[in-house]
């Protein structure tokens, strides 16, 4: 399912309700005392139990990644033994001439560059659909929206057939180019642009003699930042998690994204047991970039989500 990260569409939820934004916490002091202590305790217990459910697997992975092979089976799986995390990382990155680093780099290229370019072109298209009137505008928008409902995996096989017609399978481009297209990005950019980029501003830029394209990149883009960051993040995750397309397109190990590489190692664990350690430590390291990116951009994408949902 990772290949079809469902596109978030909170934006359509409440189209015509006035913006309230994040509720100020001062808005609810009196009722805080009114809730029964049993309800509070019950709610906190539910939250605590599920915190364990969501975090224990990650904790286990973190602990497992710090152990050497003997300790992995011999010691308490949920607590540290000798701390050999850095030895493990060293062994992982030097294994087979550092192929793991190559995979991470590939993932960063596919996801980072792909999401960046994808966001720019989706933002431009959404902006044009929101701010200009031209024949075929609604048609384009409807076709793109249909694209939101087409699962990306349904395209993987035909894309493979087409790329093999022009002998481009097993290349960087065969995974990179199809990942650039984000119909959801166009949708969100359009909704957001029509609500948050005032026509007066564009008109003023026109009167100053700025060209349309320049106006977009210098003025309008700034107002669209929350939406664009949201589009970037979700496209980044979608490409980073994508599995079917690289699986079907790539044969050459040095082109693999990290997910496909680790999948390959994991399916050979029975023949080559030493790979198990590499799979686990590699899995841990592969999650870290995504967590960092989510934390760094949290302010932006949370605003994008909630702002989107009221516009």
């Amino acid at each position: 399912m990772s290949t079809v990260v469902p596109t978030p569409t909170p934006t359509v939820t409440v189209p015509d309700r006035p913006a309230r934004g994040i509720r100020p916490s001062t808005a609810k002091p009196p009722r805080a005392q009114r809730e029964s202590p049993f309800a509070r305790a019950g709610a906190m217990i539910v939250m605590a139990v599920f915190t364990l459910y969501f975090l224990v697997p990650v904790w286990w992975l973190l602990v497992a990644a710090t152990k050497d092979r003997a300790q992995f089976t011999g010691t308490n799986p949920l607590w540290f033994a000798d701390f050999s995390l850095f030895e493990n990382i060293g062994a992982l990155v030097s294994y087979r001439d550092g192929v793991y680093l190559k995979w991470m780099l590939n993932s960063a290229m596919y996801a980072g560059l792909g999401a960046l370019v994808g966001t720019i072109i989706a933002g431009m298209c959404g902006y044009a659909l929101a701010k200009y009137r031209f024949p075929g505008r609604e048609l384009i928008f409807n076709v793109v929206l249909g694209g939101v409902l087409v699962p990306a995996t349904a395209l993987a096989l035909p894309l493979f057939l087409i790329f093999s017609q022009i002998s481009l399978t097993n290349t960087f481009w065969s995974v990179f180019l199809p990942s650039l297209v984000s119909p959801f990005g166009v949708y969100l950019a359009r909704i957001y642009a029509s609500a948050s980029v005032p026509d007066e501003l564009i008109e003023a830029a026109r009167l100053d003699g700025a060209g349309e394209v320049r106006t977009f990149f210098t003025v309008s883009v700034r107002m669209m930042v929350p939406a664009l960051v949201t589009v970037f993040l979700f496209q980044f995750v979608a490409i980073w998690n994508n599995f079917f397309l690289p699986l079907i397109m790539l044969r050459d190990e040095t082109l693999f994204p990290v997910t496909l590489g680790l999948y390959g190692w994991n399916s050979q664990v029975n023949q080559i047991p030493e790979l198990r350690g590499y799979v686990l430590i590699g899995a841990l390291l592969s999650i870290i970039p995504l967590i960092i990116i989510f934390l760094l951009l949290q302010r932006f994408w949370r605003n994008g989500l909630s702002a989107g949902s009221v516009k």
């Binding site: 298209c125 009137r133 694209g147 057939l161 180019l177 394209v213």
Partner: peptide, 29 residues
């Protein structure tokens, strides 16, 4: 239609990629 050139510049990159990697594959399948 005003600003034809700008509209083309905005819409064409996405439009072309969408056609190539969404519409054509569906047709080809």
């Amino acid at each position: 239609v005003q600003h034809k050139r700008a509209i083309l510049i905005f819409v064409l990159p996405f439009g072309a990629l969408f056609a190539l990697f969404y519409l054509v594959p569906i047709g080809y399948a």
